[in-house]
């Protein structure tokens, strides 16, 4: 089995990969939507979203919907590029 040292460690993790895969296919998504689709706990998801946001892979916008706080996430160009590279690397491992 090939090792995965070339795979972006930020993406090569279950929840972060799920979040990124969700965000590549949409324009933007609210935190609760991502939480529901990934079945993650709010705490864990927050941590992973912070990591992705710090890396510049996603853009997090905090606002209000009425009186409720609203967190909206959106993939960045850098994130999209990283995701593409990850998928390409993955394909190469599978071909081996």
């Amino acid at each position: 089995m090939a090792d995965f040292k070339d795979l972006d460690p930020l993406l090569h993790s279950q929840l972060r990969l799920a979040v990124m895969s969700l965000l590549v296919s949409v324009k933007s998504a609210e935190f609760v939507y991502i939480k529901e689709k990934t079945n993650a706990t709010a705490g864990n998801l927050s941590v992973q979203i912070d990591k992705l946001s710090t890396a510049g892979y996603i853009e997090v916008e905090k606002s209000f919907k009425g009186k409720k706080p609203l967190t909206t996430c959106k993939i960045t160009k850098k994130g999209l590029q990283a995701f593409e590279e990850y998928v390409n690397a993955l394909q190469q491992y599978i071909r081996k």
Partner: peptide
Amino acid sequence: MKQEKEHLTSEESLEIITRMIKTAQGN
């Protein structure tokens, strides 16, 4: 996906990607 799994096989990775992309289709 309750616990964070850091060691994924390539199959697991692909499965996550395809499942999430499918899930994101609008209503």
